[in-house]
């Protein structure tokens, strides 16, 4: 078979990189959306968000390893559901037990989440060890689909679709429901909402639970993407999620979505076209440029 003409081959590489970059951006969005909502509403920079991801991923992995009698697809779906539930419950408990008593003391809330992040990853290492554990997904996810000559792994489509569903669902929740209204108003001006006689704190636990679910989804998807779960992944993804959140503007869901896509694409393109590792560096550079160009704009949103 003759080799493909050069332009076409380049095109297929570009498509593969774009879809993979979008998949990565989808993962960043799932982590960053919770971070951004929590910060916007409560002023808490949640360092334990990576721990939510880890807890969700290990929850799914643990359920999967126990459900040996079930066939692959239902087992995967069940395990994923368990992971999401574990993530939600864990996040809600963290809010109730650790964050709520330190109401209004923001620095101490950040410190508590830092301690929790360290303790949770150490605990996971203590129980299941430092090594990555294999996570079995339906084989269909590992196969590829051809799009215009590019062979795209199927899990990328699932990541993108999941992130879009989460984005649409979150948007609908924030725009159409009463709690969504309270959360949006709270992000805008919490003092005013409280003055109107609405207890914003009731929404806090909800926001944490939503963030926990989204992070757990990212945990399960990263398990599919890498084929394993490991204790350090939460922290490494969290750092990029932080960058996404800052570029997108804290508290803005749409900004987070756009910046997640940009960061994911920049990382993939630079890693391929320049040199591997440079993608990560160029994301940092991007953050520097954004902050230099709009320091007032960003910090104004942060205040």
């Amino acid at each position: 078979m003759p080799a493909l003409p050069v332009p076409e081959r380049k095109m297929s590489t570009l498509i593969l990189l774009t879809i993979t970059g979008l998949g990565l951006g989808a993962m960043y969005f799932l982590i960053a959306s919770g971070l951004s909502l929590i910060y916007g509403l409560m002023g808490v920079l949640n360092f334990a968000h990576g721990a939510f991801l880890t807890v969700g991923a290990y929850g799914a992995w643990f359920a999967e390893s126990k459900l040996t009698a079930v066939s692959v697809l239902p087992r995967f779906l069940l395990a994923a559901l368990v992971g999401l539930a574990v993530g939600a419950v864990f996040a809600a408990l963290v809010e109730l037990v650790l964050i709520r008593p330190l109401y209004k003391r923001h620095i101490e809330q950040v410190l508590v989440t830092v301690g929790l992040a360290l303790a949770v990853s150490a605990l996971v290492v203590a129980i299941w060890g430092n090594d990555a554990r294999p996570f079995v997904a339906p084989s269909w996810l590992g196969e590829t689909t051809s799009v215009a000559g590019a062979h795209i792994p199927n899990d990328r489509w699932v990541e993108i679709a999941t992130a879009v569903v989460v984005l649409v669902a979150l948007n609908a929740f924030l725009r159409r429901t009463r709690y969504g209204l309270i959360i949006r108003a709270g992000v805008e001006n919490r003092a005013m909402v409280t003055a109107l006689g609405i207890d914003v704190r009731r929404a806090f636990m909800l926001v944490f639970a939503i963030g926990g679910v989204a992070a757990a989804i990212a945990g399960v998807l990263s398990g599919v993407y890498f084929g394993t779960v490991d204790p350090a992944r939460g922290t490494s993804l969290l750092i990029f999620a932080f960058i996404v959140v800052v570029i997108g503007g804290l508290g803005s869901l749409r900004g987070t979505a756009v910046s997640a896509v940009v960061v994911g694409l920049v990382q993939q393109y630079a890693n391929y076209y320049a040199s591997s590792g440079l993608g990560d560096l160029s994301v940092v550079l991007l953050l520097g440029i954004v902050l230099l160009a709009r320091p007032g704009g960003l910090s104004a949103k942060l205040a």
Binding site: F242, I243, V246, V284, L287, G288, L291, L292, S299, L302
Partner: peptide, 19 residues
């Protein structure tokens, strides 16, 4: 990084260290 304050400063310093 000192062009921004508070949490943004924390994030920018984190990003540079990550680099």
């Amino acid at each position: 990084s000192l062009r921004v304050g508070g949490i943004a400063f924390a994030m920018v310093t984190l990003a540079f260290a990550q680099a």
